[in-house]
Design a protein around this nucleic acid. Structure first.
Lengths: 338, 338
DNA sequence: TTGAAAGCGCTACCAA
DNA sequence: TTGGTAGCGCTTTCAA
């Protein structure tokens, strides 16, 4: 296997100095004569030369690599998020180093690895970052942006759906359309996403003097939605409306209700959160809150770039409201069954 | 912002040489006295020191980074593949640099970027790599493993589901259960996956003297499955069985049939390929071919490691058979309607 | 078991 | 517009 070509090989072949080769391959290719540039590019092509990002990083002190930490890649909402991030990053010649925090694993264990790679910034989504780790990143000079998570009073920016508001909207929707016995299927217990959605939901209920509702615990998976719904629906006060902390659990809940012969939306309304592609599918036609993912990602990238450009800029917390997406899984007008 | 700590800072604080610090942080930490090691680790902790992977790569000439090129991250089969790859890679202290080839984009454009990063190896999945690019990688000394793709006569290893055999199994299944008018909904035209599945399917039909079947074109998306099914089902010879090149199109086809009031599986059998999680859901209960993803990924990683360990080892092509997963979307016994 | 020193392949500064 | 050169922060000989 031939040794890899270096800029010195190219320089020799093009009859210029190594500096000139470097200049030609610099982003803002400054002050190189057309002639020299030509010869360098020709030589590079002949030798199949690719500049080493490693060496570049070594001397320029930045890698143009962004770390992305993501748990639950398989949960249908996140692949889209990931793809969008990658596209945006590639547009600005940045690379993405992807880390996944497996189920039990703490993100904190991953952080040393990330830091060792000298990423220019770190995006953390669907995974929890402790505030000590946030401090460590700040100390290492690595900007952190949380996506759909937030920590208050920590040196990290965050872009987050307005989950409280979303939960509120759904409570109002269900109450306005005459539902009487509401229930919430929660996502994994300590996630701010589930907590906030529940908080908005219950606040709105209390604001309208509804004092009783049911609750079941899920973990954001289809299966957990199914099981939680089963628990609620075979109880002696089965709900006539279920709000699920995410779409995928809502789909599980719908399939469970159907299995029990419960008509949707006639006898039971089901509402989700996220608006994943499957929510629009014929088999479900799920009423949900659509997250403005593209907007959120744009904002996240902007916050990241700002922080890279000026490390002293303050952390920013942005909430992006979602939109109610009315489909067929929740009935709209009055009560049908009692 | 304080400057990043280096091994020299640690050495100074620990009262040892920089070499010793390096040795302590080396994988196979050789020949360092317990005392020195202690002091180094203590100093490193105090200073919050993280060795630079960049500098390490610079002098050791390997990055422990694996590039992964993946198109269609959002297609439900691939997030699982991605997650598994990440887990396996992280187990061996490797990092993953993820590249996505957006719809129209050719993978070949991405390759220079990948090569510049000096990845130790490259895994390409759900994306097409030209054989010229394969040669370039070989020349650059970067091992390439294709996942669910293959190129013959190129210096790249590949692990691939046995798609021909899968198509054959499905044809046999449908014929054995008395279906008369078969149809195939293809995936994107030039993908070997779709071509091979179709080939196995039609070969089996011909082997059993079935001369006529229908065909519609899809592109692996839910919507395209829906549309293709619609085209077939409103024709004047609607099929009584449809084999779709992947599960997600099969789900679209099922929703389409239901919309048309066609009973599944009584009047129409639908079969997919992949066995994505949704195939098992109550709303679909899809008969399909399950890919042995974990096995495939283990093999891919093994091929990759072998090639990294010995760059002169030959390229290997492995096919992994899938398993028929009988569920409820295809009827099994005799003909029901005619 | 330790330390000194020579790279690894670039960028960026300074001089010409 | 060019070339020379000093790092960047490690790993890896080689000597001690």
């Amino acid at each position: 296997m031939a040794k890899r070509k270096t800029s010195i090989d190219v320089a020799r072949r093009a009859g210029v100095s190594q500096s000139t080769v470097s200049r030609v391959f610099s982003e803002n290719s400054p002050n190189v004569s057309a002639d020299a540039r030509q010869r360098v590019l020709a030589a590079a092509r002949d030798l199949n030369y690719q500049p080493s990002a490693i060496a570049r990083a070594m001397s320029s002190q930045h890698t143009r690599i962004v770390g992305i930490v993501m748990a639950n890649i398989t949960s249908p909402f996140y692949p889209y998020v990931l793809e969008k991030f990658l596209e945006r990053l590639q547009e600005t010649d940045r690379q993405a180093l992807l880390f996944t925090a497996s189920a039990g694993q703490n993100v904190d264990d991953l952080l040393p690895l990330v830091l060792q790679q000298r990423v220019d910034a770190l995006i953390v989504t669907s995974a929890l970052l402790s505030s000590e780790m946030a401090d460590q990143c700040a100390q290492a000079g690595t900007p952190v942006v949380l996506f759909n998570r937030y920590i208050r009073n920590a040196p990290v920016s965050a872009v987050c759906a307005d989950n409280v508001e979303g939960g509120r909207k759904i409570a109002d929707l269900l109450l306005n359309s005459g539902h009487q016995r509401l229930a919430y299927i929660a996502g994994s217990a300590r996630t701010s996403t589930s907590i906030d959605r529940e908080q908005g939901f219950t606040e709105a209920l209390q604001a309208r003097k509804v004092e009783r509702w049911q609750r079941a615990q899920g973990d954001y998976t289809y299966e957990s939605g199914y099981t939680a719904a089963l628990e609620l629906l075979i109880g002696d006060q089965p709900p006539d409306a279920i709000f699920c902390a995410n779409d995928i659990m809502a789909l599980g809940a719908m399939d469970c209700a159907r299995k029990l012969g419960i008509l949707i939306p006639d006898a039971l309304s089901v509402v989700g959160f996220d608006d994943i592609p499957m929510a629009a599918w014929g088999a479900y036609n799920l009423t949900t809150i659509s997250q403005e993912v593209d907007t959120m990602i744009d904002k996240a990238i902007a916050l990241m770039e700002a922080k890279i450009a000026d490390p002293y800029s303050p952390a920013v917390l942005e909430f992006v409201p979602g939109q109610l997406k009315l489909r067929g899984s929740a009935r709209l007008l009055g009560t049908v069954f009692r």
